[in-house]
Structures are given as C-alpha cells and as structure tokens.
Deep mutational scan, measured.
Amino acid sequence: MAAGGDHGSPDSYRSPLASRYASPEMCFVFSDRYKFRTWRQLWLWLAEAEQTLGLPITDEQIQEMKSNLENIDFKMAAEEEKRLRHDVMAHVHTFGHCCPKAAGIIHLGATSCYVGDNTDLIILRNALDLLLPKLARVISRLADFAKERASLPTLGFTHFQPAQLTTVGKRCCLWIQDLCMDLQNLKRVRDDLRFRGVKGTTGTQASFLQLFEGDDHKVEQLDKMVTEKAGFKRAFIITGQTYTRKVDIEVLSVLASLGASVHKICTDIRLLANLKEMEEPFEKQQIGSSAMPYKRNPMRSERCCSLARHLMTLVMDPLQTASVQWFERTLDDSANRRICLAEAFLTADTILNTLQNISEGLVVYPKVIERRIRQELPFMATENIIMAMVKAGGSRQDCHEKIRVLSQQAASVVKQEGGDNDLIERIQVDAYFSPIHSQLDHLLDPSSFTGRASQQVQRFLEEEVYPLLKPYESVMKVKAELCL
C-alpha cells in the first residue's frame, strides 16, 4: 500500500493539533497551500530580480507567473513527485505547466533550498508574528487579574506546605514575570531571523556568478533584492546548502521555554482548584465526569500541561538535527523538520489560546482563602504575639514557653481530632496574655502579614508589564474561544 493518505478522510490519521486544537490561522501558515504558494512567490521574486539585473526574462513571463501564483494543481504535483521522487522539481514542473512561456526560467540558477529553506524562514517569521500578540493578550488578562487582587491576602506555599502570606495578585505576578520573559525572547528570536537568500547549491553562489558572467556586484544585488522582497532586513552571508540548523534550535528553545512557563502556571491553577481557592472557567453544560456528576475538573489547565510537556520535548529534535548536518548538509534534517517545526508552533498556539481562555474567566473564592488563612495564621502570628507581650512588660522566655504549650495543644486538636485551630481562643482565655487581649485582632490582621506584596504588584505592572504590552494595544480586544 502506498504511503500517505487522504487526510480529510475519517479513515486516515490526522494530527489532533490540526484537527482538534490549533487555530485556523496557525494551521494555514503550515498548510501545503501556504507552503507551495510561497515557493511560487519566491520563484517570481527571483525572476523579477534577475530581470532587473539584466537576464533575458520578459515582462510577459513575469506576468504569467504572477497570474498563476494561486493556480496550484495539487493532484498534478503529487503525481509528479511520485514520478520524480523530488518535491521541488515536482512543483517546478507543475508551475511550468500553467506558465508555459515562463517554464524555462522558473528556478533559474537556484537549488531546492532556495524555495525550501527560504519558505521555512518566512513561515517561522509569520508563525512567530501570530504567537506574539496571543502571548501579549494572556499577559494582559493576567495583569488585569493581578491588579484587581493585588491586596487580597492568601496563604503562600513553599514545598506545598503553608508559608508566609502573600497576595493573590502577587502570586499571579510570578506567572506574568515568566511570560514577559517569554514574550521578550519570542520577539528577540523573531527579529534575529535572517533570510537564507540566493546562495546556490553549497552556499557559494557559483551558479549565479556564472549567470551574471562573473559580476560579483550583481550577485550581491540579486541576494539583497530577493531578501528585501521577502520582507527581511538581512540575509546570511555564510550558508551551506541550507541555512544553519542552529536557527531551528533557537526558535524551538524559546517555544519550549514558553511551554515550561505555561505548565507551571496551569499546575498552580490545578492545585488551587483542589484547594477550592480558584477555578478555571466551567461552562453551564460542561460535564466533569461521566460517573461523578459533582466533579469540576480543571480540564483546560490539564490540557495545557499535557501539550506543554510535548512542546518542551520537541527542542531535542533540532538539537540532534543540527549535530548531524555533515559538511554542507545531509538530508537527516528533512523529514524531522517537516514534523517538529509545525508541531512546535501548533502546540504553542494551542496552549496560548487555551491559557487566554482560562485567564479571561478565572474565578476566585475569597471566603475559602480566608478560612485557610484562619487555619494557619495563628501559628504564624506567634512571633508577633511574643513581641507584643514583651512590649507590655512580659518575659520573652516565659511567653515563648506559654505559646509553645498552647500551640501544641491547638495542633493536637487540628491533627488528632480534625478540629479547627483554636490557638487564639486559648490565648484569649489565658490570664497571662490579658495585657494584649485587646491587640489580638490587630495582630491577626492578614494584611499585616503580606509585606509589600501589593506595592510590588503595582510597581511591576507599571514599570515592566504595561510598557512591554504597549506595541500590542491594537490587538488586545480579541477574545479566545474554545470549541473543545
């Protein structure tokens, strides 16, 4: 049975990233139509530049190519590739079939990587351009969430054990800070992308030097003109047959890092959902379990974690691919890159769409948070109580021993009897502590235990987050809708 299948058929496997999760716009960027249309555009740009620099290419040939950029006979191309065992030459023939007058000058002087690699770089750039505003929107939604809850005390956790208090907004800023680093890295790697350009079979530009009869300047002009037509500021000066596969490492490393950030955020949300302090959106008709109707599973956060793990592992592909590119190139890269580049971007696209949807509907339960604080705060307040007693004339050592005994009794009630923490009640009825009984409410005010959390939130948002989001103001209103 021949390899390949009808990918629109229910009898043929289709990647869930495309069929179930990723956005239509990201799927289109990695589609065959987008790819092969870009090949034709690159052939047109090459012909236009070659004509401008004096090669015998007519206006009629150029116009014929322009008129057929979208006229792609995919069936013919597939048949040609089956016959020739070469995808680029299959599309040269297919393009030439609908451009008979231009057929002889299509791909003039070029090698397969002229269309293959340059198209990949265009796709990487455009895919990054799709991700950047999506990530900015996630940051914006979380920034709104953090600002609104900047002063809401909550129990902090280290080692997932109760620690000092923080605020809900401050905790959210930990998430935002990681995503801001990801946004900066995505922008950097996007701006650092260079075009492969017009380089020939081993990167020496020998074929173009021959076409222009040894004119170095025209060869350099050709490279520059096509690079500018493709919208790049610069091209690699040095290439082998391909652009260095280190570029793929750079791009997928940034995406993998984004995956790590999203995994951490969504894990926190899942843990908070278990504590009943916070939940992701839950639709009115949504079913959490087929057997347990009360369940409210954090399905979206779980999906993000599941896909983020996949995204983090994909960076190993370009690392290994770059390491086995012998001399000017081997074909070890080809099949692998067809999979890992598309999957990385479709996965990143999915987790950003999902995280935006989550961040637009996060639900906080202040009463649950308050109750958990009441359970733990008495123990945390013991040092403040000791200091207040010393100020009232008591002995630190005597007070410490009193607190120690009462704390152990209260802990026994919590752990052995399943009761509430009654340390404060014990202190309130103990005559030894009568000098500070009137101060206990103040000493137990949760806001006095959150330090500068709310001020940190305000400063972080104003100095770091809002300036970073400013270039994306025009796209901030787009909502994230999930079908599944």
Rank of each mutant, 00 (worst) to 15 (best):
residue 151 S to N: 13
residue 383 E to D: 06
residue 454 S to V: 09
residue 35 K to C: 09
residue 45 W to E: 09
residue 319 L to R: 00
residue 78 A to L: 14
residue 350 T to F: 08
residue 184 Q to D: 09
residue 234 R to Q: 03
residue 27 C to T: 13
residue 303 R to E: 01
residue 330 T to M: 02
residue 108 L to I: 13
residue 401 E to V: 03
residue 111 T to D: 03
residue 300 R to H: 14
residue 425 E to Q: 11
residue 370 E to F: 14
residue 147 K to A: 14
residue 406 L to S: 07
residue 445 D to R: 11
residue 157 F to T: 04
residue 5 G to T: 14
residue 129 D to P: 00
residue 409 Q to T: 11
residue 424 I to L: 11
residue 145 F to C: 14
residue 469 L to E: 14
residue 239 T to I: 11
residue 269 I to L: 03
residue 47 A to H: 04
residue 480 A to I: 15
residue 111 T to W: 00
residue 281 P to D: 14
residue 353 N to T: 09
residue 289 S to K: 01
residue 186 L to A: 12
residue 441 D to R: 13
residue 260 A to R: 02
residue 441 D to F: 15
residue 437 H to I: 00
residue 450 T to K: 10
residue 192 D to I: 12
residue 395 S to T: 06
residue 251 V to D: 03
residue 42 L to I: 13
residue 27 C to P: 15
residue 60 E to L: 07
residue 447 S to V: 14
residue 354 T to N: 11
residue 334 S to A: 06
residue 216 D to M: 09
residue 16 P to V: 15
residue 460 F to A: 06
residue 447 S to D: 10
residue 362 L to D: 00
residue 203 G to L: 04
residue 135 L to G: 06
residue 193 L to D: 04
residue 165 L to V: 08
residue 335 A to C: 12
residue 392 A to S: 08
residue 396 R to Y: 04
residue 116 G to D: 14
residue 23 S to L: 09
residue 33 R to H: 02
residue 394 G to P: 13
residue 316 M to W: 11
residue 355 L to M: 06
residue 78 A to I: 14
residue 275 L to G: 05
residue 303 R to L: 02
residue 443 L to Q: 04
residue 302 E to Q: 00
residue 84 L to P: 04
residue 308 A to T: 07
residue 128 L to K: 15
residue 418 G to D: 01
residue 393 G to L: 09
residue 168 V to L: 05
residue 42 L to G: 00
residue 116 G to Y: 00
residue 185 N to K: 10
residue 362 L to A: 13
residue 268 D to P: 01
residue 56 P to A: 05
residue 56 P to W: 03
residue 70 E to F: 14
residue 251 V to Q: 01
residue 92 V to P: 00
residue 248 D to R: 02
residue 458 Q to D: 14
residue 201 T to E: 00
residue 318 P to V: 13
residue 453 A to N: 15
residue 390 V to E: 06
residue 33 R to C: 12
residue 423 L to D: 06
residue 331 L to W: 00
residue 339 I to N: 11
residue 171 R to C: 02
residue 314 L to S: 07
residue 274 N to F: 10
residue 104 G to T: 11
residue 40 R to C: 06
residue 132 L to E: 11
residue 455 Q to I: 07
residue 466 Y to I: 13
residue 129 D to T: 13
residue 135 L to W: 00
residue 72 I to P: 02
residue 445 D to W: 10
residue 297 N to V: 00
residue 474 S to W: 15
residue 342 A to W: 09
residue 358 I to N: 06
residue 153 P to Q: 03
residue 221 Q to R: 12
residue 180 C to T: 14
residue 409 Q to P: 03
residue 259 G to V: 01
residue 425 E to K: 10
residue 80 E to S: 08
residue 34 Y to Q: 01
residue 353 N to H: 07
residue 307 L to F: 14
residue 293 P to W: 01
residue 394 G to M: 12
residue 22 A to C: 10
residue 465 V to W: 04
residue 289 S to R: 00
residue 397 Q to S: 14
residue 429 V to G: 13
residue 239 T to Y: 00
residue 135 L to M: 14
residue 261 S to M: 01
residue 21 Y to D: 02
residue 417 E to I: 07
residue 105 I to W: 10
residue 133 P to N: 03
residue 474 S to C: 15
residue 398 D to R: 11
residue 148 E to T: 07
residue 408 Q to H: 13
residue 86 H to C: 00
residue 362 L to Y: 04
residue 104 G to M: 12
residue 10 P to E: 11
residue 414 V to G: 03
residue 245 R to S: 01
residue 185 N to R: 12
residue 39 W to V: 08
residue 69 L to H: 07
residue 327 F to M: 03
residue 371 R to E: 00
residue 210 Q to T: 10
residue 247 V to A: 10
residue 172 C to R: 05
residue 366 P to S: 05
residue 82 K to Q: 07
residue 22 A to Y: 15
residue 444 L to Q: 05
residue 468 L to Q: 15
residue 78 A to E: 06
residue 306 S to N: 03
residue 7 H to C: 13
residue 364 V to A: 04
residue 160 F to V: 08
residue 299 M to I: 03
residue 442 H to L: 12
residue 276 K to E: 05
residue 280 E to W: 01
residue 199 K to T: 07
residue 208 F to Q: 05
residue 50 E to D: 06
residue 302 E to M: 05
residue 40 R to G: 09
residue 233 K to I: 06
residue 252 L to Y: 07
residue 154 T to C: 06
residue 330 T to V: 09
residue 270 R to N: 04
residue 12 S to G: 14
residue 297 N to K: 02
residue 397 Q to H: 06
residue 374 R to Q: 10
residue 441 D to I: 06
residue 338 R to M: 02
residue 293 P to Q: 01
residue 148 E to N: 09
residue 213 E to H: 09
residue 415 K to V: 09
residue 337 R to Y: 04
residue 28 F to R: 10
residue 377 L to F: 02
residue 374 R to F: 03
residue 182 D to E: 05
residue 465 V to S: 04
residue 407 S to P: 07
residue 5 G to E: 10
residue 359 S to R: 14
residue 88 V to N: 03
residue 284 K to W: 12
residue 6 D to A: 14
residue 471 P to I: 12
residue 361 G to T: 08
residue 267 T to I: 13
